[in-house]
Amino acid sequence: MWVTSSVVESTVVFAVLVVLAVWIDLFDLPWWVWVLLVAADVVYTAVVPQWRYLVHRWEVTDTAVYTQTGWWARERRIAPMSRIQTVDLVEGAVARLFGLATVTVTTASAAGALEIAGLDRDVARRLVDDLTVKADAVEGDAT
């Protein structure tokens, strides 16, 4: 999924550049800059998704949810079960193509949302049910 996303991303960036350059004559780049750009795009699509995949971790215990995401800036997030407010399941267009889904766990803080991307759809569904039951079992208004 990430490979596809990044292919789409870099293609779009490239296309925008081409359109800007050719159509509006906005800037005039020598040919070697184009070569560099293409190379950067290829490397980006080849390396970053793999890297991302290697970094990605998630874990759910009885009292907490844990995720690790990112490739350059790596972020680990921990939220106690008692502070979970909503559990979202999102299937994007690209993700649907591969039968994947993203689960987002939000807490009362805007800085504390946990995102588990690229889960198998069935696993994601089970995870959502599981989290809902567990979060429901804990007392308090989660703030």
Partner: peptide, 20 residues
């Protein structure tokens, strides 16, 4: 909270797609 994720003095998870 943190104890369950701490291994070797650092916070780590078990692995991508850990079974429920």
């Amino acid at each position: 909270l943190l104890a369950q994720f701490v291994r070797d003095g650092s916070v780590v998870g078990q692995g991508g797609g850990a079974p429920l």
